[in-house]
């Protein structure tokens, strides 16, 4: 059904929206589901904060703490300012990727529109930080090391910056959508027997993809936060 045309048995929330007569695109509904899950889990984790964390709080301290130390180790102390954006992105993509495996739900990241929206947000966000920190001097990030190389370096840099949202979008879309197509095809060939091991492989692959998106956004932000050289 949805999933951009892949045969999906029944998408609970999407069907619910259709039955009420709300014509929201399926991808947006799926993204809202992920947002809802994030809000519920987040409030569950922070409702009873304890000095000795247990359960949900323990898990989130592990996740957020680990990511924050990773970001600070790579960007430096400036990274703490942009960390909430990066961490939110990571958790959203991770849940979005993995929810595609839950029967009755679909991955919002299996649609190119969600990914393009996120990649463009990253693109605008790191350029915003660059302009805010360096002002007009941000252009130096695009000019290369020598003044006589500017005619060559400026178009090359501009193209490579414009290529970033494209590669972010296509990588995440290709991996998530490809995984779903493989699962559907394998299910048609040999139900359950062949799809069960693939589940574990794709859980691993999609976690890595969420991490790659997060890591690349971090590197782009690092590039705009630090001095041009």
């Amino acid at each position: 059904m949805a999933g951009g045309g892949l045969p999906h048995p029944l998408l609970l929330v999407v069907e619910g929206f259709h039955s009420v007569g709300l014509n929201v695109p399926d991808t947006v509904v799926n993204a809202w589901v992920v947002m809802g899950i994030m809000i519920v889990i987040g409030s569950m984790a922070t409702r009873k904060l304890a000095m000795v964390p247990g359960g949900m709080q323990n898990f989130f301290e592990f996740l957020v703490g680990g990511l924050e130390s990773f970001v600070v180790a790579n960007i430096g102390e400036k990274g703490r300012k942009v960390f909430p954006f990066l961490c939110g992105l990571f958790v959203f993509i991770l849940i979005g990727n993995l929810i595609g495996f839950v029967p009755g739900f679909d991955a919002p990241t299996a649609n190119i529109n969600t990914n393009a929206a996120m990649a463009l947000t990253v693109f605008i966000y790191y350029n915003f930080w660059g302009l805010k920190l360096w002002g007009p001097g941000y252009i130096k990030h695009f000019l290369g090391p020598f003044w006589w190389l500017i005619p060559l370096m400026l178009p090359v840099e501009l193209i490579s910056h414009l290529a970033r949202p494209l590669s972010l979008t296509l990588r995440l879309f290709g991996n998530v959508r490809g995984g779903e197509i493989v699962l559907v095809l394998l299910f048609a060939l040999a139900p359950v027997v062949s799809t069960f091991p693939m589940y574990f492989m794709f859980i691993l692959a999609k976690t890595i993809q969420a991490f790659v998106f997060f890591m690349l956004s971090m590197i782009y932000l690092k590039g705009s936060l630090e001095h041009a050289h």
């Binding site: 290529a163 970033r164 993809q209 790659v212």
Partner: peptide, 13 residues
């Protein structure tokens, strides 16, 4: 896993 698309996307743009 990043390298491949980085090479291609520059050319495409």
């Amino acid at each position: 896993s990043v390298i491949g698309l980085h090479l291609v996307s520059g050319v495409l743009v």
